[in-house]
């Protein structure tokens, strides 16, 4: 029973990586729509994706971090790649909060996009700029997550 519970908790925690990728896909679609498309309806869908999956990522990752990360932290800091926590995770914790709000703000832009705004090249450029920065931000966080997992693996004695 306890083992099954552990599997469920680990899968639920790992799901934040997947939901973050959905946020990134939403931002990529928004980037394309702002440059080459012109449908406020599609932008509203992408904006909703960003807000919903951004919030889900935030809650899943936050829940796992607060309740379960301390065990991983002890293993990482006791291993060869202690900096995976002391530098990478310490930075990730911080960027994650501002990154979440960045996704929400871009979601607001997409959700409220109008035909008139899409006729304005400055508005299109704004969405394109914010979208590409969000994509880069998610990639950065995913990469940092990979480094933290590598630190954990080494801490557990893996290669």
């Amino acid at each position: 029973m306890i083992k099954t519970q552990n599997v469920i908790i680990t899968l639920a925690a790992s799901a934040h990586v997947f939901t973050a990728i959905l946020v990134m896909i939403g931002a990529i679609l928004m980037f394309g729509e702002s440059l080459w498309g012109g449908s406020p309806k599609r932008l509203r869908i992408y904006g909703t994706v960003l807000i919903v999956f951004g919030a889900l990522t935030y809650l899943l990752a936050g829940w796992w971090y607060v309740l379960y990360y301390s065990a991983d932290k002890a293993i990482i800091t006791g291993g060869e790649m202690a900096w995976a926590h002391t530098l990478v995770m310490e930075t990730k914790e911080h960027i994650f909060i501002s990154g979440f709000w960045f996704a929400i703000v871009l979601g607001i832009f997409g959700y409220f996009a109008t035909e008139e705004q899409l006729n304005n090249p400055y508005y299109r450029k704004t969405i394109a700029l914010l979208s590409i920065m969000l994509v880069l931000g998610v990639l950065l966080l995913e990469g940092m997550g990979g480094i933290i997992i590598a630190g954990l693996k080494l801490g557990l004695g893996g290669v």
């Binding site: 400055y122 450029k125 914010l130």
Partner: peptide, 10 residues
């Protein structure tokens, strides 16, 4: 200019 404000924010 909303684009400039977005650039400043970034």
């Amino acid at each position: 200019d909303i684009y400039k404000l977005a650039l400043i924010a970034i």
